[in-house]
Design a protein around this nucleic acid. Structure first.
Length: 543
RNA sequence: GGCCCCAUCGUCUAGAGGCCUAGGACGUCGCUUUCUCAAGGCGAAAACACCGGUUCAAAUCCGGUUGGGGCCGCCA
């Protein structure tokens, strides 16, 4: 479905603030893109403006619908929603450049006719050589303009022969300045830019894919637009008033302004955000570790933590408050308070915020969030009637009964809530629940008997403590088996010892097999009398 | 190499000429609590890159130096 540019954006309100995020679907949603999206979103919301998602998929070979879906899903997961786009089933789809090729062709033709763009037949090898040479003699590595003055006949002949070419913009020489909302005046000498490419011929792959859906004849010679050109056309057509993007686009800005000027487009306001940096202070990239939002989501970071964290990468409200939800960010955000310098991605801070938000969640909600990790680990499996097992976890009802894989025992959602509940304040990310709570789902605990020893206890003392525990606990009625009672009785008993640890440490280790864990009383309560005694017996057997 | 951008604790930052003996947060360390680990409370160490200038007064303004980064694609 080709869109006709002339009618697409008729609904735009005059004076409206309009921003966009323009990711290319050549990889999953990157943390940097997400942060840029967030700043655009906050700015739009704060000003009752429009926030647009535009998928920049002109490079068909590198673009992948999988990544497009990833970008959309994760933007939504973060709570960053666009409010405009082609109507699909009553919902706004994102704009896609691949569906707007006719629009680009129209303007490309215009530039060609006005002789503000020209065909360049130089080979890529030739160009690369030129670049290297210019760099070696200390010059700006720009295109020489060799094909700029080719005669119309020569061009026609080359084209007729099918000689490979790209279309270049005829960069005028001038001093150019723009006002950056974050950095102030930025100046360029355009003679140092060179004639950059604005459209390339389609590859065979592209041609095959295009002919199915596009009216190729309408595209000038089948050329597809390149970034700097497509952006200018789209930002104009979509009436973008503020371009808020990463600092890495500063040097693209004069190119885009030049095209705007030639085409008589108004100039949007620009704001270039500082980059997100790795620990080595270079642009955050794959080699620094996880860079996609999806990876963080899978590790068990909460969207509110991600949003709070990303907002403070290069921005702060100017007061001492550090915890912000999306609505409060919308209220407080301002471009004026955005930093100029790059911000190092500090995972420790993200962990802190995530832990904080985990502690804010209700236990019920937290349990729902944690269960997938326990299922994934194979500790538990949802219970289903015969043949009812759904294909993927996604469609499943979470609040239901489960089966412990190792023991076959059936457990309720309420039981799991208790398990998660005692670990709430220990979790930094959801995925950690498996290591923290594994002992609830194991048939037999594996641990060294030395772990049972607290301080300077010897075998005799341990045996005594464990035996004592077994005796006392077995006398407690099952109806009295709760952490309050257990605590009352056991603390009293422990106080008879030289040190409480001599009784409580062995108990906790016997129940968990761990050096560090939640408290023994709450664990014993959840485990139940039978299992608690069983584990004590197993511990005693080690001596 | 050329052009552009940037510069306060390890990190994110407050600071718009005197409120600065430079504030907060994460992290680190200590104390507290405690059977352990967390969480919580209290506390500590920790920064204005350098050199000039302007000014009675500079982290704040100006110039330079140094350092760091980004971009220089038939990617976006």
């Amino acid at each position: 479905m080709e869109m006709e540019s002339d009618d697409d954006f008729k609904f735009i309100k005059p004076g409206e603030i309009r921003v966009r995020i323009a990711p290319s679907p050549t990889g999953p949603l990157h943390i940097g893109t997400a942060r840029t999206a967030l700043f655009n979103y906050l700015f739009a919301k704060e000003n009752q403006g429009s926030f647009i998602l535009r998928i920049e998929d002109t490079d068909l070979e590198r673009s992948d619908p999988v990544f497009e879906a990833d970008i959309i899903d994760n933007l939504k997961w973060l709570g960053i929603e666009w409010n405009e786009g082609p109507d699909i089933n009553g919902k706004h789809a994102p704009y896609k450049q691949s569906q707007r090729l006719n629009t680009y062709a129209k303007y490309l033709e215009k530039l060609l006719v006005k002789e503000q763009a020209y065909y360049c037949f130089c080979s890529e090898e030739e160009l690369e050589e030129e670049r290297q040479y210019k760099m070696s003699i200390g010059q700006a590595p720009i295109y020489s303009g060799k094909c700029k003055n080719l005669s119309p006949e020569t061009v026609k002949n080359h084209l007729a022969q099918g000689k490979s070419s790209i279309i270049r913009f005829k960069t005028p020489f001038k001093k150019l300045a723009f006002n950056d909302l974050i950095r102030g005046k930025i100046e360029f000498d355009t003679s140092l830019i060179g004639d950059f490419g604005i459209a390339k011929p389609p590859t065979t792959f592209q041609r095959e894919n295009l002919t199915k859906q596009q009216n190729l004849q309408k595209v000038v010679g089948g050329y597809t637009p390149l970034y700097n050109f497509a952006v200018v056309i789209d930002d104009f057509e979509m009436n973008i008033t503020y371009v808020i993007r990463g600092e890495d686009h500063i040097s693209n800005t004069p190119k885009q302004i030049l095209i705007q000027e030639v085409l008589d487009f108004p100039r949007p306001k620009y704001a270039h955000l500082p980059l997100i940096l790795g620990p080595d202070r270079t642009k955050l990239s794959k080699r620094h570790g996880a860079t996609s939002i999806a990876e963080y989501k899978n590790q068990g970071y909460l969207p509110e933590a991600m949003v709070n964290f990303m907002a403070f990468l290069g921005w702060n409200p100017g007061n001492e408050r550090e915890i912000y939800s999306m609505p409060s960010l919308i209220k407080e955000f301002s471009l004026e308070r955005v930093q100029k310098g790059g911000a190092v991605f500090n995972i420790k801070r993200l962990d802190f915020l995530n832990g904080f938000y985990i502690r804010q969640r209700s236990i019920e909600k937290l349990t729902e969030l944690c269960l997938p990790y326990l299922i994934e680990e194979g500790f538990i499996a949802p219970l289903f009637e015969e043949g009812q097992y759904p294909p993927a976890y996604g469609g499943m009802e979470i609040k239901q009964n489960y089966r412990i894989s190792e023991t076959g025992e059936e457990i309720s959602f309420e039981f799991l809530k208790k398990v998660i509940g005692i670990h709430q304040e220990r979790l930094k990310k959801l995925s950690e629940i498996s290591d923290l709570a594994d002992f609830f789902f194991k048939k037999k605990l594996e641990y060294d008997k030395n772990l049972l020893m607290w301080a300077k206890m010897g075998d005799r003392e341990i045996s005594y403590s464990l035996d004592r525990l077994r005796k006392i606990l077995s006398k407690i009625e099952i109806t009295d088996w709760n952490k309050e009672n257990l605590s009352k009785i056991l603390i009293l008993e422990a106080e008879k010892m030289p040190n409480k640890g001599e009784l409580l440490w062995p108990l906790r280790v016997a129940l968990t097999g761990k050096e560090a864990s939640a408290g023994p009383f709450e664990i014993a309560e959840i485990l139940g009398k039978e299992k608690t005694l069983e584990r004590l017996k197993e511990a005693i057997a080690k001596f």
